[in-house]
Design a protein around this nucleic acid. Structure first.
Length: 513
RNA sequence: GGCCCGUUGGUCUAGUGGCUAUGACACGGGACUUUCUAUCCUGGGACAGGAGUUCGAUCCUCCUACGGGCUGCCA
């Protein structure tokens, strides 16, 4: 195996990192760790018009939250930086000169307006305008113009771009690690812009220059890049770098849950689930999106879920930590077809992490949340609470809402069910039971349970006639953890006070029918 | 429109030239239980369609359909 694996995640800071991008980052990271390689973060900010302030920080914060830590990157550093493309302008310039000198690229002076008009015209004829071997000689470039004319334009400082000279009638064949052999005719390609009029490179050029210079061994990216890969191959060839060209690996896309197309921001709004890792407010429009983190997802659970849309280890283990994923990951088990986003499954993974989570850890996570609500409780209490509630919630942030009654007084009773159970003829029995509970010294779940059971037997009462009343008295609701467990955690004093108050409330409630 | 990529239950998927086609989520039923969960058991449900190749195709080939991507001085 290649012992010098160097892979990179190369997002563009044009907005919040999409969940598909997160998955690409994850696979890239897994691949790097699996092969003791290097994971590089490179910021592809060559489009000054689309730059969004805060987006780069968002990307870093998201990776940080997910614990997908780059080995090299902006701020982190590394020997082959800088890792922000906007800081590499001079480098691209140098290689652009080189590719021109080699005769594999040329200057083009056509304005965006010229080209727009040509596209429109072609469209009217139901055709496609393409800047390629068939049209370039009738356009304004250093191939069609005389050297003098070109020099003239240069002297006038006319804006120009640099385009790749694609030769017609050739076939480009490359191996993709997930798609195997892919073929393309150069007749389908166009003379891609390499350097823009503003002096910045396009994605294509910056990408191959950087991957080459950063000694990237494998290009792992989404399938939307598959169709520009032949251009990249041509570029490596044109630069004379083909022998060290990286391997390509195009990941299947994540599709929307229903209907057509890939998962988008709109789907999140439409179905009410996150499609971004973190909350984000667009600095321009003020538009807000919610993140998986804020929704209450555990980073590990999100990663676990994401890992399995588009990849599976081939065994039947689905719940696994990052180290297991690293151990099992392999690109030849990445699937070719796009996967639909299944939010139910994402939630299931989270519930698994909550339920299998360490109680101390969960309690630690709950502590600040509890403090926020003004709940003052001991660590032991919190741990006991977690124990009682953890199979009943999907998200950590549901604990305190679902079980609020452990921290404050009952807000409302489930009247409907109360009416069914709070019978006149049983009223006296509840006072007896109260007295019985009052006599217990060691108020633990086991003792309370034994006592209550004994009482029920003596009085010839069923569980169903008594427990629901206690439950509603203590929590207001009919759902929740074991009544005896609740009693122990609340403690004798609070339990009895609540019951006393509840009995009185129940009597009152039922009088005003 | 053109080119490229894809297609196993509702969803994510395993799988091999010959099996009752795997597991998970979701859904139905049951068990447990004081309730809600969780858990356990259990049920229904898929090889897109058509031609080939072959003794035999989910698996190989071709065509069709459908889905996706690209088609910018965006990434």
């Amino acid at each position: 195996m290649n012992s010098t694996v160097r892979v990179r995640f190369a997002p563009s800071p044009t907005g919040p990192l999409h969940i598909g991008g997160v998955r690409t980052a994850l696979y890239t990271f897994l691949y790097a760790r699996k092969h003791q390689g290097t994971f590089i973060l490179r910021i592809e900010d060559t489009d000054q018009g689309r730059y969004v302030p805060g987006a780069e920080d968002y990307i870093k914060e998201a990776l940080d939250w997910l614990n997908i830590q780059p080995d090299e990157g902006p701020e982190i550093g590394g020997d082959l930086g800088p890792y922000r493309q906007s800081e590499r302008k001079a480098i691209y310039k140098k290689y652009a000169d080189e590719i021109i000198a080699k005769g594999n690229a040329y200057f083009a002076f056509d304005t965006p307006e010229d080209l727009g008009a040509l596209r429109k015209e072609a469209e009217a004829n139901k055709e496609n305008f393409k800047y390629d071997a068939s049209t370039r000689m009738s356009l304004k470039n250093s191939l069609s113009l005389s050297p003098d004319e070109v020099q003239n334009l240069m002297d006038q400082e006319a804006p120009y771009v640099i385009r790749l000279k694609v030769n017609p009638n050739e076939e480009v064949v490359f191996q993709d690690l997930v798609r195997e052999e892919v073929r393309w005719s150069t007749n389908e390609l166009d003379d891609k812009v390499l350097m823009k009029a503003d002096g910045m490179p396009t994605y294509h050029f910056a990408n191959i220059v950087d991957d080459h210079l950063m000694k990237v061994s494998h290009v792992i990216r989404g399938e939307e890049w598959l169709s520009s890969t032949p251009v990249h191959v041509l570029l490596y060839r044109a630069m004379g770098w083909e022998d060290t060209m990286p391997e390509f690996c195009h990941l299947p896309l994540i599709l929307k849950p229903v209907g057509k197309g890939k998962l988008s921001k709109r789907d999140g709004a439409k179905f009410g689930f996150p499609v971004f890792p973190l909350d984000w407010v667009d600095p321009k429009t003020g538009e807000e999106v919610t993140g998986f983190r804020e929704k209450g997802f555990e980073a590990e659970a999100l990663l676990n879920f994401l890992a399995l849309v588009g990849w599976n280890p081939g065994d039947n283990e689905e719940v696994m930590d990052i180290n297991t994923m690293i151990e099992k990951f392999s690109i030849d088990r990445v699937s070719k077809s796009g996967g639909r986003f299944d939010y139910d499954k994402a939630k299931w993974f989270n519930a698994q992490y909550v339920q299998q989570g360490d109680e101390e850890d969960l309690a630690t996570k709950l502590k600040p949340l509890a403090a926020q609500k003004g709940y003052e409780v001991s660590d032991d209490f919190l741990k006991g609470f977690v124990q009682l509630m953890k199979t009943r919630v999907t998200f950590v942030n549901e604990f305190l809402d679902e079980g609020y009654y452990f921290f404050e007084e009952v807000k409302a009773y489930d009247e409907k069910n109360l009416r069914k159970k709070w019978k006149e003829d049983k009223r006296a029995k509840f006072d007896l039971l109260y007295q019985r509970l009052d006599r217990i010294n060691n108020f633990t779940e086991e003792v309370v349970e034994t006592e209550v059971k004994a009482f029920l037997q003596e009085e010839e009462l069923g569980f169903g006639a008594v427990l629901p009343i206690l439950r509603i008295g203590l929590s207001g609701t009919l759902k929740g953890p074991s009544v005896f467990g609740m009693m122990e955690l609340l403690g004798k004093e609070k339990t009895l006070n609540r019951l006393k108050k509840a009995y009185a409330d129940f009597d009152k409630l039922l009088q005003n029918v």
